[in-house]
Design a protein around this nucleic acid. Structure first.
Lengths: 151, 151
DNA sequence: TATTGTTATACTCTATAACTATA
DNA sequence: TATAGTTATAGAGTATAACAATA
């Protein structure tokens, strides 16, 4: 029942349109990631972990980065371990286990990162200048929960 | 093993960064949508259908728009029907059923659209001018599969 | 007592296959 | 024969709760 001016209405409508566009674009980017990594025999959620594990990290930290339960990290680690892509190594605190990529894991991660970098939407559809314009806008849009992975 | 120039490397790295940013932002937008509609007692996937049903539409069309199987549309329609938000109405072709929002469904959809328009990221974090800059960039980024919904 | 990781279990979202009614 | 929707079932992804080991 809030009375808005016609001008306000138009701004809401435009913001809404942009919001939808943004999500559509991101959905395509995610689908693209899934398709790229499936070429390497990995489901997207495992590939995401691989990309995240630049350094060995406590399982607990992964759970925070992925905003999921610790028990799910156990499951992800099991799957990647079965594929020979990572190992659990004991931490200083003996309760803690670090997830560390094996040589094979590192090699696969590099291949995936490379493929994503070359084929991603931003690279394919924008000019250098457009990318320079887009960067700051996305930074303004991003809050804090910056989940840093390409998927 | 493809030899890239340092300049190419830098462009890939920047594109990759933008790609991650884009996905992170979209993830936040989606989380926001989920949180808004859960305030109205709806899970995000049902809200998405509600927003999509501006006009009564054959179930088949919904399946195309959501890029999912027809059987899943049956399940979504059942859930929304149980909540009194839509009804199935027979189409001209007697095999077809149209999904049409009830008055209650229309009212809820309007409330949700309004809340999303006012509270979405694009509205909150960008100036008018920034929005004008962002629009064309997103349009260039978008391919064809433009899934038109705010979630 | 609080925290890390594990196990067992269950739930949500979505797909596949077989089916019915209509075209 | 082909198409729209339904049913039954199954799978993937993820969470919750209770537990063991360590702090």
């Amino acid at each position: 029942m809030s009375s808005r001016s016609p001008n306000q209405e138009a701004r809401f409508a435009e913001a809404s349109r942009l919001s939808q566009l943004l999500v559509a674009v991101a959905e395509e980017a995610r689908a693209e990631f899934t398709s790229i990594v499936s070429g390497y025999g990995l489901p997207a959620h495992l590939a995401r972990v691989l990309v995240l594990l630049a350094e060995p990290a406590p399982m607990r930290d992964l759970a925070v980065q992925l905003a999921c339960d610790r028990s799910y990290i156990t499951s992800l680690a099991d799957q990647l371990e079965r594929r020979g892509l990572l190992t659990r190594v004991p931490g200083a605190d003996r309760r803690v286990k670090l997830l560390a990529l094996t040589d094979e894991g590192v090699a696969l991660r590099d291949k995936i990162s490379g493929a994503v970098a070359e084929r991603n939407l931003v690279m394919r559809r924008l000019t250098d200048e457009e990318r320079r314009t887009l960067g700051p806008l996305l930074e303004r849009l991003r809050g804090d929960g910056s989940a840093a992975c390409d998927c």
